[in-house]
Design a protein around this nucleic acid. Sequence first.
DNA 1: CTCTTGCA
DNA 2: TGCAAGAGT
Length: 329
Amino acid sequence: MGVKFKDIIEPEIINFKDLNGRTIAIDAANSLYQFLSSIRQADGTPLMDKNGNITSHLSGILYRTSNIVEKGIKPIYVFDGEPSEYKENTINERREIRQDAEKKWKEALKKGDEQTAMKFAKRSSRMSPYILESAKELLEIMGIPYVQSFGEGEAQASYMVLNGDAWAVASQDYDCLLFGAKKIIRNLTISGNLSDLEYLELENVLNRLEITREQLVDIAIMVGTDFNPGIKGIGAKTGLKIVKNSSIEKYIKEKGIAFDLNLEELKNIFLNPNINKNYSIKWRSVDKTKIVDFLCKKHDFSEERVLSAVKKMEKLNTTQKSLEDWFGK
DNA sequence: CTCTTGCA
DNA sequence: TGCAAGAGT
């Protein structure tokens, strides 16, 4: 879900033109989840091939990636590694929500209530090894690089921006701000107006709020993250006041709040994440034979549609990385 | 989510 | 050209 910062964040709006020539590190888990939950038939059934394998995520990767490449963007997908033990509660909670949603989806199907069925089908989406492996296989065939994180993908993607390998991170979650991503893009989609991409610069966010990244992390911990439940009754605005007028440590002590988790370890999840520094990034041209084999022959995609996406991919500049990512804006 | 089609 | 509706697998 990510940290709830909406009330204190004011995103800028940018255009696809502003991203021409830029390398963008895409949070793979975030994109895949979007595809799995939204690419469905009216009754909530995901797209599937003849053998019953889910293909919604492959459809999403193909069309979105080819579209952004056509717009001059050089994408890198960043996959999650092992979750922190602090995330266990969140993971269990999500599994329960999924299982409950699946039940309600089937019930609604029996009643013939498509709207309700769709609502719960979306919530039942789950990331399986098959989903991850087939997504990576497709990216390889498309010539799009991906990076395997040790831990959180958003932490890895944020580091890659810091390291000059990408210009910005694309994710729907604000967590990348906590991980230190200098630039973040939300809504990196082609649908809707072509000009309503949300854009955030960490430096601007911090300047406007008049706080440091460490303080932003403290607000997140009070509000609640994937790694801790937060303090009851504190939202982004109250959290902001606390870090400015006091501190998380003082606040806990003064109010006698039982905070069971190790605060330093929690902060370090964001401030000192485990990063895979041994990655290489290379764009190649899409393999036309392999993509037809994989998507059309194996997964029943229409050849006409696949080839028109392949055509869009041909705009990809396959040289290492653009200087704009270092010196741009 | 994205693509295609059809119609204003 | 823009929007709504339906299909994609």
